[in-house]
C-alpha cells in the first residue's frame, strides 16, 4: 500500500513538474507591468538622490529589453558587414545610450498614471501593448512591441505617440553607415554617450 502511495506521489509530482515545464512563457502584459512597476518603484523610491536613474534602472531594462534585437534592427542590413567584435561593441554602446536617454525622461515629481489596453497580436511571437501615460496633466500614448525571445517576452520597440524608437534610430544610422560604415556608427555613439554622461 505504501508502495502504491509512493508511486502515486511520484506520478503527481512528475505531472506537476511537466505542467510547469510546459507552461508557455508568462503573459507579455504581466511581464510589461512588472517591468514598468519596477522602474517606477526605483524612480520614485527616493534612492535616486545618491545614484543616477540610469544606474538604478539598468538591471530592469537589461532583463526586459532585447537590446541585441533592438540594435541590429536599428542599424539595418549594414549589420551583416559588421565584424562580431564591432557588433558586440555597437550593441554595448547603443544599450548604454538607450538606457541613459530613457532614464533622462524621468523627472522627480508627480508619478505618472499608466493604463494598459488589451494587447494586440501581431503574430504568434509578437504583441503590441498599447498604454496611456497621464503625466503633468497631459496624456501620451506609448505602445510596447514585445517578442518571445528564447522563451521570454521582451520589449523590442517602444512607440511613443506613433514614433517608433527603432525607426527613429534607423533613420539616423543609415546615412552614417553609408558615410563611414561600422566605424562611423561607433564613433558617433561614443561621442553621444560622452556628451550625455558629462551633461549630468
Amino acid at each position: 500500500m505504501r508502495f502504491v502511495r509512493l508511486i502515486l506521489i511520484f506520478i503527481a509530482s512528475f505531472t506537476a513538474f511537466a505542467a510547469v515545464a510546459a507552461t508557455p512563457a508568462a503573459d507579455p502584459l504581466q511581464v510589461l507591468r512588472g517591468a514598468v512597476d519596477e522602474v517606477l518603484g526605483i524612480v520614485y523610491s527616493g534612492k535616486t538622490q545618491t545614484q543616477s536613474f540610469s544606474v538604478l534602472v539598468r538591471p530592469v531594462l537589461e532583463k526586459n529589453f532585447s537590446f541585441d534585437l533592438i540594435t541590429r534592427r536599428a542599424v539595418g542590413p549594414g549589420w551583416r558587414q559588421f565584424t562580431p567584435a564591432q557588433q558586440a561593441k555597437t550593441t554595448a554602446l547603443f544599450t548604454e545610450l538607450v538606457i541613459h536617454t530613457y532614464a533622462d525622461r524621468f523627472e522627480v515629481g508627480a508619478q505618472p498614471g499608466i493604463t494598459y489596453a488589451a494587447p494586440v497580436e501581431l503574430s504568434r511571437n509578437k504583441r503590441e501593448l498599447p498604454t496611456t501615460i497621464d503625466y503633468a496633466g497631459k496624456k501620451y500614448s506609448v505602445a510596447y512591441r514585445m517578442e518571445l525571445v528564447a522563451d521570454q517576452w521582451r520589449v523590442c520597440d517602444v512607440i511613443i505617440e506613433g514614433v517608433s524608437m527603432i525607426s527613429n534610430y534607423r533613420a539616423q544610422f543609415d546615412p552614417m553607415f553609408q558615410r563611414g560604415g561600422a566605424a562611423e556608427i561607433m564613433r558617433s555613439l561614443e561621442e553621444k554617450i560622452t556628451q550625455v554622461s558629462t551633461a549630468k
Partner: peptide, 27 residues
C-alpha cells in the same frame, strides 16, 4: 529636449519623429 538629447543627428531624428507622428495621427 528629450528628442534632441537622445539623438545622434538631431535634424534627422526630429524629422523622422515628426513624419511618424503625423502619419500615425492621420491613421
Amino acid at each position: 529636449d528629450d528628442e534632441k538629447k537622445a539623438a545622434l543627428d538631431p535634424y534627422v531624428s526630429v524629422r523622422s519623429a515628426y513624419i511618424q507622428y503625423r502619419d500615425a495621427a492621420v491613421q
